[in-house]
Simulated scan of single mutants.
Amino acid sequence: MDENYDTVAIIRKEIFNLTDTHVIDVKDPENALDALMFVLAIDAEKCSRNKRQNY
């Protein structure tokens, strides 16, 4: 959401894939990089959490 509470992007995870696959639908192309960085940050946190649990 932006400062006007408008939807900037819709991000969803496809569940029937062998790897994590995300679909990012961006309303305004200027926000595409922000949406991608958001997904990458979530994925990095998930990977870090999994590595800590395996020790």
Score class of each variant (00 low, 15 high):
16 F>Y: 08
16 F>S: 05
17 N>Q: 13
17 N>D: 05
17 N>I: 03
17 N>E: 14
17 N>Y: 08
17 N>G: 09
18 L>W: 12
18 L>P: 05
18 L>I: 12
19 T>I: 13
19 T>W: 10
20 D>C: 09
20 D>V: 11
20 D>E: 14
20 D>S: 06
20 D>P: 06
20 D>T: 11
20 D>K: 06
21 T>S: 06
21 T>A: 03
22 H>L: 03
22 H>N: 11
22 H>S: 02
22 H>D: 08
22 H>Q: 03
23 V>C: 00
23 V>D: 02
23 V>L: 04
24 I>S: 11
24 I>Q: 04
24 I>T: 10
24 I>W: 01
25 D>C: 15
25 D>E: 15
25 D>M: 15
25 D>I: 15
26 V>M: 05
26 V>H: 04
27 K>D: 06
27 K>L: 07
27 K>Q: 09
27 K>C: 00
27 K>F: 06
27 K>S: 07
28 D>Y: 08
28 D>V: 04
28 D>K: 02
29 P>S: 07
29 P>L: 03
29 P>D: 08
29 P>K: 07
29 P>G: 03
30 E>R: 12
30 E>D: 12
30 E>L: 09
31 N>M: 06
31 N>R: 04
31 N>H: 08
31 N>K: 13
32 A>E: 09
32 A>Q: 01
32 A>Y: 07
32 A>H: 03
32 A>D: 07
33 L>P: 02
33 L>G: 08
33 L>D: 14
33 L>K: 14
33 L>Y: 13
33 L>W: 12
33 L>A: 14
33 L>M: 14
34 D>Q: 13
34 D>K: 09
34 D>L: 12
34 D>T: 11
34 D>F: 08
35 A>V: 05
35 A>C: 12
35 A>M: 04
35 A>W: 05
36 L>D: 00
36 L>S: 01
36 L>M: 13
36 L>A: 12
37 M>R: 14
37 M>E: 14
37 M>N: 15
37 M>I: 14
37 M>Y: 14
38 F>V: 10
38 F>C: 00
38 F>G: 00
38 F>N: 05
38 F>W: 07
39 V>E: 07
39 V>F: 05
40 L>K: 02
41 A>R: 01
41 A>V: 00
41 A>N: 09
42 I>K: 10
42 I>C: 00
42 I>M: 08
42 I>T: 01
42 I>Q: 05
42 I>G: 03
43 D>C: 08
43 D>A: 12
43 D>N: 11
44 A>T: 02
44 A>Y: 04
45 E>K: 09
45 E>I: 01
45 E>R: 10
45 E>P: 01
45 E>Y: 10
45 E>N: 02
45 E>V: 03
45 E>D: 10
46 K>N: 07
46 K>H: 07
46 K>P: 04
46 K>Q: 11
46 K>M: 05
46 K>E: 11
47 C>N: 15
47 C>E: 15
47 C>K: 15
47 C>F: 15
48 S>Q: 13
48 S>M: 12
48 S>V: 11
48 S>D: 13
48 S>E: 13
